[in-house]
Design a protein around this nucleic acid. Structure first.
Lengths: 157, 157
DNA sequence: AGTTGAATGTTATGTTGTATCATTAGCCCA
DNA sequence: TGGGCTAATGATACAACATAACATTCAACT
Protein backbone atom coordinates (compact mmCIF):
# COMPACT_ATOMS: atom_id res chain seq x y z
CA UNK A 1 0.00 0.00 0.00
CA UNK A 2 1.66 3.16 -1.17
CA UNK A 3 -1.30 5.44 -0.92
CA UNK A 4 -0.37 8.47 1.11
CA UNK A 5 -3.71 8.58 2.85
CA UNK A 6 -3.83 4.94 3.76
CA UNK A 7 -2.90 5.68 7.32
CA UNK A 8 -6.09 7.46 8.11
CA UNK A 9 -8.76 5.03 7.04
CA UNK A 10 -9.76 1.55 6.05
CA UNK A 11 -9.53 1.89 2.34
CA UNK A 12 -11.29 -1.35 1.37
CA UNK A 13 -14.22 -0.31 3.48
CA UNK A 14 -14.22 3.10 1.89
CA UNK A 15 -14.33 1.54 -1.59
CA UNK A 16 -17.11 -0.83 -0.59
CA UNK A 17 -19.13 2.02 0.84
CA UNK A 18 -18.74 4.06 -2.32
CA UNK A 19 -19.87 1.19 -4.50
CA UNK A 20 -22.82 0.36 -2.28
CA UNK A 21 -23.86 3.99 -2.36
CA UNK A 22 -23.52 4.05 -6.15
CA UNK A 23 -25.77 1.00 -6.45
CA UNK A 24 -28.41 2.63 -4.29
CA UNK A 25 -28.32 5.85 -6.24
CA UNK A 26 -28.44 4.19 -9.64
CA UNK A 27 -31.27 1.96 -8.49
CA UNK A 28 -33.25 4.93 -7.24
CA UNK A 29 -32.62 6.82 -10.48
CA UNK A 30 -33.38 3.80 -12.64
CA UNK A 31 -30.09 4.00 -14.48
CA UNK A 32 -27.87 0.98 -14.94
CA UNK A 33 -24.68 0.52 -13.00
CA UNK A 34 -23.46 -2.24 -15.32
CA UNK A 35 -20.52 -4.51 -14.44
CA UNK A 36 -18.12 -2.46 -16.53
CA UNK A 37 -19.28 0.81 -14.99
CA UNK A 38 -19.06 -0.61 -11.50
CA UNK A 39 -15.59 -1.99 -12.14
CA UNK A 40 -14.40 1.37 -13.45
CA UNK A 41 -15.86 3.06 -10.39
CA UNK A 42 -13.99 0.61 -8.17
CA UNK A 43 -10.72 1.21 -10.03
CA UNK A 44 -11.10 4.96 -9.66
CA UNK A 45 -11.84 4.53 -5.95
CA UNK A 46 -8.84 2.23 -5.38
CA UNK A 47 -6.72 5.36 -5.09
CA UNK A 48 -7.41 8.68 -3.50
CA UNK A 49 -5.19 10.02 -6.19
CA UNK A 50 -6.73 11.15 -9.43
CA UNK A 51 -6.24 8.39 -11.97
CA UNK A 52 -5.83 8.75 -15.73
CA UNK A 53 -8.22 7.13 -18.19
CA UNK A 54 -5.48 4.94 -19.63
CA UNK A 55 -4.46 3.76 -16.17
CA UNK A 56 -8.07 2.79 -15.67
CA UNK A 57 -7.95 1.02 -19.01
CA UNK A 58 -4.86 -0.98 -18.04
CA UNK A 59 -6.47 -2.12 -14.84
CA UNK A 60 -9.82 -2.84 -16.44
CA UNK A 61 -8.15 -4.91 -19.15
CA UNK A 62 -6.85 -7.36 -16.53
CA UNK A 63 -10.35 -8.71 -16.04
CA UNK A 64 -11.98 -7.51 -19.20
CA UNK A 65 -9.91 -8.33 -22.25
CA UNK A 66 -12.16 -6.48 -24.68
CA UNK A 67 -11.59 -3.15 -22.95
CA UNK A 68 -10.59 -0.29 -25.27
CA UNK A 69 -10.41 3.48 -24.79
CA UNK A 70 -14.09 4.02 -25.65
CA UNK A 71 -15.07 1.38 -23.10
CA UNK A 72 -13.39 3.41 -20.39
CA UNK A 73 -14.45 6.86 -21.56
CA UNK A 74 -18.08 5.76 -21.81
CA UNK A 75 -17.99 4.43 -18.29
CA UNK A 76 -16.27 7.57 -17.02
CA UNK A 77 -18.82 9.76 -18.79
CA UNK A 78 -21.66 7.81 -17.21
CA UNK A 79 -20.13 8.02 -13.75
CA UNK A 80 -19.55 11.76 -14.11
CA UNK A 81 -23.10 12.33 -15.33
CA UNK A 82 -24.36 10.53 -12.23
CA UNK A 83 -22.08 12.54 -9.98
CA UNK A 84 -20.16 9.48 -8.82
CA UNK A 85 -16.76 10.71 -9.94
CA UNK A 86 -15.17 14.01 -10.87
CA UNK A 87 -12.66 14.93 -13.50
CA UNK A 88 -9.66 16.97 -12.40
CA UNK A 89 -9.10 19.17 -15.43
CA UNK A 90 -5.61 20.30 -14.54
CA UNK A 91 -4.45 16.68 -14.38
CA UNK A 92 -6.66 15.05 -17.00
CA UNK A 93 -7.54 12.52 -14.35
CA UNK A 94 -10.53 11.18 -12.48
CA UNK A 95 -11.39 10.85 -8.81
CA UNK A 96 -14.16 9.19 -6.85
CA UNK A 97 -16.66 11.63 -5.42
CA UNK A 98 -17.06 11.50 -1.66
CA UNK A 99 -20.28 13.42 -1.72
CA UNK A 100 -22.17 11.39 -4.29
CA UNK A 101 -25.90 11.66 -3.98
CA UNK A 102 -26.39 15.35 -3.74
CA UNK A 103 -25.19 17.22 -6.74
CA UNK A 104 -22.63 19.80 -5.80
CA UNK A 105 -19.80 21.84 -7.10
CA UNK A 106 -16.43 20.30 -6.61
CA UNK A 107 -13.42 22.05 -5.21
CA UNK A 108 -10.09 20.26 -4.92
CA UNK A 109 -6.83 20.61 -3.07
CA UNK A 110 -4.24 18.79 -5.13
CA UNK A 111 -0.90 17.97 -3.51
CA UNK A 112 1.98 17.81 -5.95
CA UNK A 113 4.11 15.94 -3.39
CA UNK A 114 1.90 12.94 -2.59
CA UNK A 115 -0.42 13.22 -5.57
CA UNK A 116 -3.61 13.09 -3.54
CA UNK A 117 -6.58 15.30 -4.23
CA UNK A 118 -8.88 16.24 -1.41
CA UNK A 119 -12.39 17.29 -2.25
CA UNK A 120 -13.53 20.18 -0.11
CA UNK A 121 -16.97 21.68 0.22
CA UNK A 122 -16.84 25.29 1.21
CA UNK A 123 -20.09 27.17 1.07
CA UNK A 124 -18.44 30.55 1.54
CA UNK A 125 -16.23 29.86 -1.44
CA UNK A 126 -19.16 28.70 -3.48
CA UNK A 127 -21.07 31.83 -2.52
CA UNK A 128 -18.12 34.01 -3.56
CA UNK A 129 -18.09 32.24 -6.92
CA UNK A 130 -21.78 32.88 -7.40
CA UNK A 131 -21.43 36.52 -6.41
CA UNK A 132 -18.58 37.00 -8.89
CA UNK A 133 -20.64 35.62 -11.75
CA UNK A 134 -23.92 37.29 -10.81
CA UNK A 135 -22.23 40.66 -11.21
CA UNK A 136 -21.42 39.80 -14.84
CA UNK A 137 -24.86 38.41 -15.64
CA UNK A 138 -23.20 35.10 -16.40
CA UNK A 139 -25.22 31.90 -16.08
CA UNK A 140 -23.13 29.23 -14.44
CA UNK A 141 -23.24 25.65 -15.58
CA UNK A 142 -20.03 24.27 -14.19
CA UNK A 143 -17.48 25.48 -11.67
CA UNK A 144 -13.94 24.15 -11.81
CA UNK A 145 -11.89 24.99 -8.73
CA UNK A 146 -8.57 23.20 -8.50
CA UNK A 147 -6.00 24.43 -6.03
CA UNK A 148 -2.54 22.95 -6.45
CA UNK A 149 0.20 23.02 -3.84
CA UNK A 150 1.49 20.97 -0.94
CA UNK A 151 -0.79 19.41 1.64
CA UNK A 152 -0.30 19.83 5.38
CA UNK A 153 1.02 16.33 5.81
CA UNK A 154 3.64 16.57 3.06
CA UNK A 155 4.99 19.84 4.45
CA UNK A 156 5.98 18.12 7.68
CA UNK A 157 7.82 15.28 5.97
CA UNK B 1 -14.44 39.39 -37.85
CA UNK B 2 -16.37 36.72 -36.03
CA UNK B 3 -15.10 37.43 -32.57
CA UNK B 4 -18.06 37.77 -30.26
CA UNK B 5 -16.43 40.63 -28.37
CA UNK B 6 -15.37 42.60 -31.41
CA UNK B 7 -18.25 45.01 -30.95
CA UNK B 8 -16.96 46.46 -27.76
CA UNK B 9 -13.41 47.43 -28.58
CA UNK B 10 -10.76 48.11 -31.14
CA UNK B 11 -9.16 44.76 -31.29
CA UNK B 12 -6.07 45.68 -33.29
CA UNK B 13 -5.30 48.32 -30.73
CA UNK B 14 -5.83 45.87 -27.94
CA UNK B 15 -3.35 43.44 -29.53
CA UNK B 16 -0.81 46.20 -30.08
CA UNK B 17 -1.12 47.31 -26.49
CA UNK B 18 -0.62 43.79 -25.22
CA UNK B 19 2.51 43.32 -27.32
CA UNK B 20 3.95 46.69 -26.35
CA UNK B 21 3.33 45.83 -22.71
CA UNK B 22 5.00 42.46 -23.17
CA UNK B 23 8.08 44.11 -24.68
CA UNK B 24 8.34 46.49 -21.75
CA UNK B 25 8.00 43.73 -19.21
CA UNK B 26 10.49 41.42 -20.87
CA UNK B 27 12.93 44.28 -21.26
CA UNK B 28 12.64 45.16 -17.59
CA UNK B 29 13.06 41.55 -16.58
CA UNK B 30 15.93 40.98 -18.99
CA UNK B 31 14.31 38.02 -20.64
CA UNK B 32 14.03 37.69 -24.38
CA UNK B 33 10.81 38.22 -26.24
CA UNK B 34 12.15 36.66 -29.41
CA UNK B 35 10.35 36.97 -32.77
CA UNK B 36 8.78 33.53 -32.38
CA UNK B 37 7.59 34.25 -28.86
CA UNK B 38 6.19 37.60 -29.89
CA UNK B 39 4.41 36.10 -32.88
CA UNK B 40 2.87 33.41 -30.71
CA UNK B 41 1.73 36.06 -28.25
CA UNK B 42 0.14 37.99 -31.10
CA UNK B 43 -1.63 34.89 -32.40
CA UNK B 44 -3.02 34.12 -28.96
CA UNK B 45 -4.19 37.73 -28.61
CA UNK B 46 -5.87 37.76 -32.06
CA UNK B 47 -8.86 36.14 -30.39
CA UNK B 48 -10.46 36.66 -27.04
CA UNK B 49 -11.32 33.04 -27.31
CA UNK B 50 -8.93 30.54 -25.84
CA UNK B 51 -6.91 29.05 -28.68
CA UNK B 52 -5.44 25.56 -28.90
CA UNK B 53 -1.71 24.97 -29.30
CA UNK B 54 -2.21 23.37 -32.70
CA UNK B 55 -4.27 26.31 -33.92
CA UNK B 56 -1.39 28.50 -32.89
CA UNK B 57 0.93 26.16 -34.76
CA UNK B 58 -1.13 26.39 -37.96
CA UNK B 59 -1.08 30.16 -37.84
CA UNK B 60 2.57 30.37 -36.90
CA UNK B 61 3.50 28.05 -39.75
CA UNK B 62 2.15 30.56 -42.28
CA UNK B 63 5.09 32.83 -41.63
CA UNK B 64 7.48 30.40 -40.06
CA UNK B 65 7.77 27.20 -42.05
CA UNK B 66 10.01 25.44 -39.54
CA UNK B 67 7.37 25.60 -36.83
CA UNK B 68 6.67 22.30 -35.09
CA UNK B 69 4.80 21.41 -31.90
CA UNK B 70 7.86 21.99 -29.67
CA UNK B 71 8.32 25.43 -31.21
CA UNK B 72 4.86 26.41 -30.08
CA UNK B 73 4.90 24.71 -26.69
CA UNK B 74 8.23 26.31 -25.83
CA UNK B 75 6.89 29.73 -26.68
CA UNK B 76 3.67 29.10 -24.76
CA UNK B 77 5.67 27.90 -21.75
CA UNK B 78 7.79 31.03 -21.84
CA UNK B 79 4.76 33.30 -22.13
CA UNK B 80 3.04 31.55 -19.25
CA UNK B 81 6.13 31.77 -17.08
CA UNK B 82 6.22 35.50 -17.72
CA UNK B 83 2.53 35.83 -16.93
CA UNK B 84 1.68 37.04 -20.43
CA UNK B 85 -0.82 34.31 -21.19
CA UNK B 86 -2.87 31.80 -19.23
CA UNK B 87 -3.82 28.24 -19.93
CA UNK B 88 -7.47 27.30 -19.62
CA UNK B 89 -7.21 23.78 -18.26
CA UNK B 90 -10.76 22.74 -18.98
CA UNK B 91 -10.30 23.58 -22.67
CA UNK B 92 -6.62 22.77 -23.19
CA UNK B 93 -6.32 26.20 -24.67
CA UNK B 94 -4.48 29.46 -24.15
CA UNK B 95 -5.56 33.04 -23.67
CA UNK B 96 -3.82 36.40 -23.53
CA UNK B 97 -3.60 37.82 -20.05
CA UNK B 98 -5.17 41.24 -19.63
CA UNK B 99 -3.44 41.87 -16.35
CA UNK B 100 0.11 41.09 -17.37
CA UNK B 101 2.68 42.79 -15.23
CA UNK B 102 1.48 42.01 -11.79
CA UNK B 103 1.35 38.33 -11.05
CA UNK B 104 -2.12 37.29 -10.05
CA UNK B 105 -4.43 34.38 -9.82
CA UNK B 106 -6.59 33.88 -12.81
CA UNK B 107 -10.32 33.33 -12.73
CA UNK B 108 -12.28 32.81 -15.92
CA UNK B 109 -15.84 32.95 -17.13
CA UNK B 110 -16.04 30.73 -20.17
CA UNK B 111 -19.07 31.02 -22.44
CA UNK B 112 -19.98 27.82 -24.24
CA UNK B 113 -22.13 29.73 -26.72
CA UNK B 114 -19.67 32.25 -28.12
CA UNK B 115 -16.49 30.58 -26.93
CA UNK B 116 -15.06 33.66 -25.26
CA UNK B 117 -13.34 33.57 -21.92
CA UNK B 118 -13.37 36.62 -19.71
CA UNK B 119 -10.71 36.99 -17.10
CA UNK B 120 -12.08 38.35 -13.87
CA UNK B 121 -10.23 39.54 -10.82
CA UNK B 122 -12.28 39.18 -7.71
CA UNK B 123 -10.49 39.76 -4.46
CA UNK B 124 -13.35 38.42 -2.35
CA UNK B 125 -13.24 35.21 -4.31
CA UNK B 126 -9.50 35.01 -3.97
CA UNK B 127 -9.79 35.60 -0.24
CA UNK B 128 -12.39 32.83 0.03
CA UNK B 129 -10.00 30.50 -1.75
CA UNK B 130 -7.21 31.36 0.63
CA UNK B 131 -9.46 30.92 3.66
CA UNK B 132 -10.55 27.51 2.41
CA UNK B 133 -6.98 26.32 2.07
CA UNK B 134 -5.65 27.90 5.23
CA UNK B 135 -8.09 25.82 7.23
CA UNK B 136 -6.51 22.65 5.82
CA UNK B 137 -2.93 23.80 6.31
CA UNK B 138 -2.47 23.52 2.57
CA UNK B 139 0.23 25.62 0.87
CA UNK B 140 -1.12 27.05 -2.34
CA UNK B 141 1.00 27.26 -5.46
CA UNK B 142 -1.60 27.60 -8.15
CA UNK B 143 -5.32 28.34 -8.20
CA UNK B 144 -7.41 27.23 -11.16
CA UNK B 145 -10.87 28.76 -11.27
CA UNK B 146 -12.80 28.18 -14.48
CA UNK B 147 -16.50 28.87 -14.52
CA UNK B 148 -18.33 27.58 -17.57
CA UNK B 149 -21.76 28.68 -18.68
CA UNK B 150 -23.41 31.30 -20.86
CA UNK B 151 -22.35 34.93 -20.84
CA UNK B 152 -24.80 37.80 -20.44
CA UNK B 153 -24.65 38.75 -24.10
CA UNK B 154 -25.33 35.24 -25.40
CA UNK B 155 -28.36 34.82 -23.15
CA UNK B 156 -30.09 37.71 -24.88
CA UNK B 157 -29.52 36.41 -28.40
C1' DA C 1 38.00 34.20 -33.39
C1' DG C 2 36.68 30.94 -29.42
C1' DT C 3 33.56 29.74 -25.67
C1' DT C 4 29.34 29.42 -23.58
C1' DG C 5 24.49 29.06 -22.82
C1' DA C 6 19.97 30.02 -24.58
C1' DA C 7 16.99 29.38 -28.33
C1' DT C 8 15.49 26.90 -32.09
C1' DG C 9 15.41 22.89 -35.47
C1' DT C 10 14.25 18.14 -36.19
C1' DT C 11 12.54 13.56 -35.61
C1' DA C 12 10.05 10.65 -33.16
C1' DT C 13 6.95 9.24 -29.81
C1' DG C 14 3.88 9.49 -25.78
C1' DT C 15 -0.67 10.74 -23.86
C1' DT C 16 -5.48 11.89 -23.96
C1' DG C 17 -9.85 11.63 -26.19
C1' DT C 18 -13.51 10.75 -30.23
C1' DA C 19 -15.90 9.22 -34.51
C1' DT C 20 -18.00 5.60 -36.58
C1' DC C 21 -20.16 1.54 -37.44
C1' DA C 22 -21.04 -3.37 -36.02
C1' DT C 23 -22.73 -6.44 -32.59
C1' DT C 24 -24.91 -7.90 -28.44
C1' DA C 25 -28.05 -7.83 -24.43
C1' DG C 26 -32.14 -6.65 -22.04
C1' DC C 27 -36.96 -5.49 -22.37
C1' DC C 28 -41.68 -4.90 -24.08
C1' DC C 29 -45.40 -7.05 -25.83
C1' DA C 30 -48.15 -8.78 -29.84
C1' DT D 1 -41.88 -17.09 -28.45
C1' DG D 2 -39.89 -14.46 -31.17
C1' DG D 3 -39.86 -9.77 -33.45
C1' DG D 4 -38.66 -5.17 -32.73
C1' DC D 5 -36.87 -1.47 -29.99
C1' DT D 6 -33.20 0.84 -27.33
C1' DA D 7 -29.15 0.93 -24.45
C1' DA D 8 -24.76 -0.92 -23.94
C1' DT D 9 -20.67 -2.77 -25.59
C1' DG D 10 -17.20 -4.32 -29.25
C1' DA D 11 -13.91 -2.97 -32.58
C1' DT D 12 -11.19 -0.14 -35.72
C1' DA D 13 -9.38 3.90 -36.75
C1' DC D 14 -8.01 8.37 -36.00
C1' DA D 15 -7.84 13.18 -33.95
C1' DA D 16 -6.02 16.29 -30.60
C1' DC D 17 -2.77 17.49 -27.12
C1' DA D 18 1.99 17.29 -25.42
C1' DT D 19 6.93 15.97 -24.61
C1' DA D 20 11.65 13.44 -25.11
C1' DA D 21 15.95 13.62 -27.04
C1' DC D 22 19.49 15.18 -29.63
C1' DA D 23 21.38 18.45 -33.31
C1' DT D 24 22.16 23.01 -34.77
C1' DT D 25 22.27 27.96 -34.67
C1' DC D 26 22.68 32.41 -32.65
C1' DA D 27 23.93 36.12 -29.64
C1' DA D 28 26.86 37.83 -26.09
C1' DC D 29 31.11 38.04 -23.86
C1' DT D 30 35.78 37.68 -23.77
Amino acid sequence: MTDGTAHIHDHEHCIDTAIARARELCGAREVKLTPIREKVLEIVWRSHKPVGAYDVLDQLARTHKAARPPTVYRALDFLMAEGLIHKIESLNAYLGCGEAGHMHESQFLICRACGTAEEIVDDALDAALDAATKRSGFTVERKVVEIAGVCARCQTL
